[in-house]
């Protein structure tokens, strides 16, 4: 009997499945890190030189040093941290709501084949609808408040988690399920001890994807609708001509994105530390 191998699902997302074993233990860390550092420095140098050499005018693309200085100034401002706080609040609330909804619905629908068949066409139709299509509706319903951002975030991240939970619940090993049945485990116990552990790796992949999607949507809502947060600050800086300030904010959103990725990977590793199979990574 083969152990239930967890590959990341989504028909094509599991590309490197059979190559997992060959991942090198990367003993040459220092070299790799130094090269990475050199890459970052090289990038900043090129960015510094392009406006200095006049290839692009400095009023459209300020040199890197100027932007980093502006970012440093931002770090000392309460307004900046307030905006970051607004964005992160919308991100967190939206993500949380999406996860709770998706897990509840996913477990219910995933564990019944009739429900799965019934909802399949509707899910496949609703899922590809771009969340930005809801922007006008959000504005109409909530105006420039955090609820607008939440609506978009929840819609977009819901599908990421929901689909993964569906795959995960469907992946339950039949033998394990039958065994649990013959040992007289009730429905609740079966969900807790058989279905949940099987679905957890899928769920975590979904949550990690949803976390970055939620950030994109949070920033988008602020940028386009004007609900409070970093995105609105970017739009304001741009229309106000504070160009270095705008680039600094863009850098800040990138840093937040990197941070979210790191934290999510950390959480994933912690929650799945018990999981025997090394999982292939999906790249967002």
């Amino acid at each position: 009997m083969s152990a239930p191998v967890v590959t990341t699902s989504g028909s094509a997302a599991s590309g490197s499945g059979q190559h997992r074993a060959v991942r090198k233990p990367a003993r040459k860390w220092p070299v790799k890190q130094l090269l990475g550092l050199a890459g970052i420095l090289g990038f900043l140098l090129v960015w510094e030189l392009i406006p200095r050499a006049g290839i692009i005018e400095a009023r459209f693309l300020p040199p890197a040093s100027e932007v980093i200085a502006a970012l440093g100034r931002d770090f000392g401002l309460t307004a900046f941290w307030a905006a970051v706080g607004e964005t992160m609040l919308a991100w967190f609330l939206g993500l949380l709501m999406a996860i709770v909804l998706a897990v509840a619905l996913g477990f219910v629908i995933g564990s019944s084949s009739v429900l799965r068949k019934l909802t399949n066409s509707t899910v496949e139709f609703l899922r590809p609808i771009p969340s930005v299509a809801l922007i006008p509706l959000a504005v109409l319903l909530f105006g420039v408040k955090i609820e607008s951002s939440l609506m978009l975030i929840v819609y977009a991240s819901f599908w990421q988690v929901f689909i993964q939970v569906l795959y995960g619940v469907a992946d339950v090993d039949n033998v394990a399920m039958q065994t649990a049945r013959s040992y007289g485990l009730g429905t609740a116990a079966r969900v807790r001890y058989v279905v949940f552990p099987t679905a957890l790796p899928y769920l975590m992949t979904g949550v990690r994807l949803a976390a970055s999607v939620a950030l994109i949507l949070a920033i988008t809502a602020e940028l386009v609708i004007g609900s409070p947060g970093l995105g609105r600050e970017i739009a304001l800086a741009q229309s106000g001509g504070a160009i270095s300030g705008m680039y600094a904010l863009v850098l800040a959103t990138g840093l937040i994105g990197v941070l979210i990725n790191l934290v999510m990977r950390f959480i994933e590793r912690k929650t799945l530390s018990w999981h025997s199979s090394v999982r292939s990574e999906v790249i967002v």
């Binding site: 970055s212 950030l215 994109i216 920033i219 988008t220 940028l223 386009v224 995105g231 970017i234 739009a235 741009q238 705008m246 680039y247 904010l249 863009v250 959103t253 990138g254 840093l255 937040i256 994105g257 990197v258 979210i260 990725n261 790249i283 967002v284």
Partner: peptide
């Protein structure tokens, strides 16, 4: 880093 930048902020840039 570039992957982590939410793409919509590229519009104003």
């Amino acid at each position: 880093f570039f992957r982590a930048v939410p793409p919509p902020v590229l519009v104003p840039v």
